[in-house]
C-alpha cells in the first residue's frame, strides 16, 4: 500500500496548479523511491515530468509499486477545499480504484477525508534521451515569468538566442517588436553557461503555461540544444523537480 504525508497542502496545491493547465489526465507512478508523473499535452508539443523523492514527504511508505490514474481537475477541486497549512496524507491500496486524501489542520482539531475515483489510463511513457545541452541559463523564476508574459503581447512565437554575452528573448508581431536581454550577474542570480551559441523559436503560449510552476521555486533552469526540445526546470524543495519540455518550431 501507499501512504505519503506532506507537511503542508500548499506544496500539493502548487504542484497541481503547475500541471493542470497542460495536462488533464495523468498517471502518478509510486514506488519505494518516490513518485513520478510524465505526460504530454494533447497536441504532443510539450511534456511535463514530475519527480518527488521520498525526502519531499514527512512520512512515506510504498510497499509495492502502484500507478494512480488521476483526473487533475478533480484533484484540484479536492486540494482547493483544504487550507494551505493543513497536512495531507495520500493513501491507496495495492490495486486501488480510489485515492484517499486526508487533511488535518495544524492543531489537529479539524480533519477532512476525501476519496477520489481513479482512472484506468493507458498512457505512453516516452524515453527522454540524456542531452548535453549547448546552453544552460539559470535565473529568478519571477523574471522568467515576467519575460514570457511580456513577450506574448507581441507574438505567438518567441525566439530565444543564447551566447556568452547573454540570453535574448525576441518577439515580432503586428504591434511591433520586443527584445529582452539578460546578462550574467556578478551576484549569481543569473548564470549563463554556453558551450555553443544557439537560436531557436518556440510557441510563447506554452512557455507562459510553464510559468504556472513559478510558486514552486525561486529559480528556474532553462536548457537549450540544437534540434532538441527546450527544457525548463523548477526544483521542488531539494528533493524533486518539475520539468517541462517544449518542441522547437522548425523551418517549414
Amino acid at each position: 500500500m501507499l501512504e505519503a504525508r506532506l507537511g503542508e497542502t500548499q506544496l500539493l496545491k502548487k504542484i497541481v496548479d503547475a500541471l493542470k493547465e497542460i495536462i488533464s489526465l495523468s498517471t502518478l507512478d509510486c514506488s519505494e523511491t518516490g513518485m513520478q508523473l510524465q505526460s504530454m499535452d494533447n497536441s504532443h508539443v510539450s511534456l511535463v515530468s514530475l519527480s518527488l523523492q521520498t525526502g519531499c514527504f514527512e512520512k512515506y511508505r510504498c510497499d509495492r509499486n502502484v500507478s494512480l490514474g488521476l483526473d487533475l481537475k478533480s484533484l484540484s477541486k479536492v486540494v482547493k477545499s483544504a487550507s494551505g497549512d493543513d497536512s495531507v496524507t495520500l493513501s491507496a491500496a495495492d490495486k486501488a480504484d480510489k485515492l484517499l486524501l486526508s487533511f488535518e489542520s495544524d492543531n489537529k482539531s479539524r480533519t477532512a477525508d476525501y476519496e477520489l475515483k481513479l482512472l484506468n489510463l493507458d498512457q505512453d511513457h516516452l524515453g527522454i534521451p540524456d542531452t548535453n545541452y549547448a546552453c544552460t541559463v539559470q535565473m529568478p523564476s519571477s523574471e522568467f515569468a515576467r519575460i514570457c508574459r511580456d513577450m506574448s503581447m507581441f507574438s505567438e512565437t518567441v525566439v530565444i538566442s543564447c551566447t556568452k554575452q547573454g540570453i535574448k528573448f525576441s518577439a515580432n508581431g503586428d504591434l511591433g517588436s520586443a527584445n529582452i536581454k539578460l546578462a550574467e550577474t556578478s551576484k549569481g542570480d543569473i548564470t549563463i553557461d554556453v558551450e555553443e551559441p544557439i537560436t531557436q523559436s518556440f510557441a510563447g503560449r506554452y512557455l507562459n503555461t510553464f510559468t504556472r510552476a513559478t510558486p514552486l521555486s525561486d529559480r528556474v533552469k532553462i536548457c537549450l540544444a540544437p534540434e532538441v526540445p527546450l527544457l525548463v526546470e523548477y526544483s521542488i524543495e531539494d528533493y524533486g523537480y518539475i520539468r517541462y519540455y517544449l518542441a522547437p518550431k522548425v523551418d517549414d
Binding site: M40, H44, V45, S46, L47, D124, H125, L126, G127, I128, P129, T157, S201, A203, E227, V228, P229, Y245, A247, P248, K249, V250, D251, D252
Partner: peptide
Amino acid sequence: KSKQGNLMSFFTKK
C-alpha cells in the same frame, strides 16, 4: 516560415 515541431520526433516510446 516555421511550423511547430512535435515531441514524438525527438523522444522515443518506451
